[in-house]
Simulated scan of single mutants.
Amino acid sequence: MSSALLQNEIQYCFENINGSCHKTPWPLGIRSTLYAVLGFLTFLTLSGNFMVMIVIAYFKQLHSPTNFLVASLACADFCLGLTVLPFSTIRSVETCWYFGETFCRVHSCLDASFCYASIFHLCFMSIDRYVAVTDPLVYPMKFTAPVSRMFIAVAWTFSIVYSFSVVFSRANDEGLQELVQALACVGNCELVFNKTWVLITSLLYFIPFFTMIALYSRIFSVAKRQARMIESVSKKTQSSDNYIARVNRKERKAATTLGIAGIAFLLFWSPFFVTVIIDAFFNFITPPLVFDIMIWLTYANSAMNPLIYSLFYPWFRKAVKVIVSCRILRQDCSTMNLLQK
């Protein structure tokens, strides 16, 4: 009797399919809350990053090498919100994958591609800011639009090729056949990575990580020294409005904003990669719920960047107001001066 009762209580992802995964049903209140929170996060990711792309693409004054990188980063985050987050939301709330094994691999590849594209964009942006702050007068000749496009092409191409080649070649689970078999059931979408690929994957995060730390540390050190020099010159000349001072202030402000975006990225992503490394070397001890939380913490970073821009870039707030108020329909709107106070 008790055995039959227990069997009736067990729920499956696919009731009429043999070998279906067990389903972990959440109470209705929790399911509704999760759908609302994760749905809002997806909406925020899509709307915020779409606005960044529109603003930079439409207003000609914003067509700069740095902003091209910002727009491309927003594109990566927007694509993540469009193609990955809706399916991840259903998987997290329903605790089942309803979209087939092939799309599971495609979904995982897109997830990794867009996330790595974000990593490399932020790293290249730190290089851009380093040159701008340390050598502002030569910067326009060093970091041109073709250089920016080259960085963007490298970030996208490497991220997509790497992610799809590793997952579809199944190199990631080589030597883990027993674990893969244990996890194999209809309704599961969980890729595992062996120690070799965990190390390689982690290096692709930690190398840009330490690059950004080193460059932004150098940037703020130089910026502090420049600020003292400008203050000294200002006291002597009673004016700090010379060209070099204005350029330095502008580049330092941009570096600060992008530095905050970089720091937010590190805070949101580091727990995930630490968890992945611990999992690979300690026999996958992380509970599924904890791992899922780590994944959504990384996804949340894609919604953060537009919020950072809105807080620290007056031109972004001004452009959004123009778009929302429909003034964008005016013929000369694309050439308006957004940087004017």
Rank of each mutant, 00 (worst) to 15 (best):
F87L: 11
V274I: 15
H121L: 04
M1L: 11
I277M: 15
W156N: 13
Q331Y: 05
I293F: 12
I328Q: 09
L38Q: 14
P136G: 09
T211I: 11
N242L: 02
L80G: 15
L69H: 01
S239W: 07
H107A: 06
W97K: 01
L339D: 13
C79V: 03
I308V: 11
L46A: 10
M53L: 03
V290N: 08
T275C: 14
F40C: 09
M125S: 01
V55M: 04
L110K: 01
Y309T: 04
I152P: 01
V167S: 06
L38M: 15
A303P: 07
K23T: 04
S165F: 12
V322F: 05
C326H: 10
M150F: 06
G39T: 10
R129C: 08
L267A: 13
V320Y: 10
S159C: 01
L339I: 01
V161G: 06
L6D: 15
V37H: 08
V166T: 11
C21I: 05
F284Q: 14
P65V: 02
V55Y: 04
D111T: 14
Y243L: 03
L41K: 08
F312T: 04
T298L: 09
F78T: 08
N248K: 06
T89N: 15
I219T: 12
V322S: 07
M336I: 15
L110R: 02
Y162K: 03
Y116E: 06
M53E: 11
L69G: 01
V186W: 03
Y309V: 03
P136H: 06
S3A: 15
L203H: 11
L62I: 08
C79P: 01
F284W: 15
R91I: 11
S64D: 10
P288W: 04
V274H: 04
V276F: 08
Q61M: 08
L179K: 14
Q61L: 04
F40N: 08
N305W: 02
F50I: 14
C75N: 09
L5F: 14
D128S: 05
S88F: 14
K250I: 03
S148H: 00
T196I: 13
I152D: 05
V37D: 13
K142G: 02
P146R: 08
T144E: 12
N301L: 09
D292N: 13
M336W: 12
Q7N: 13
Y58T: 10
P306L: 06
Q340W: 04
F99E: 15
R129Q: 10
Y205V: 12
L204S: 03
F206Q: 09
F43T: 13
L266D: 04
S163C: 07
Q11Y: 08
Y116N: 02
Y12G: 06
I213S: 11
M294N: 07
A227V: 11
V186Y: 02
I213R: 10
S169T: 15
C96H: 03
L179G: 07
T237L: 08
K341F: 03
E231T: 07
Y116W: 02
A300P: 07
V322K: 03
P314N: 08
R252Q: 15
L329G: 00
H63Q: 14
F68P: 00
F158L: 07
C96W: 02
V233Q: 06
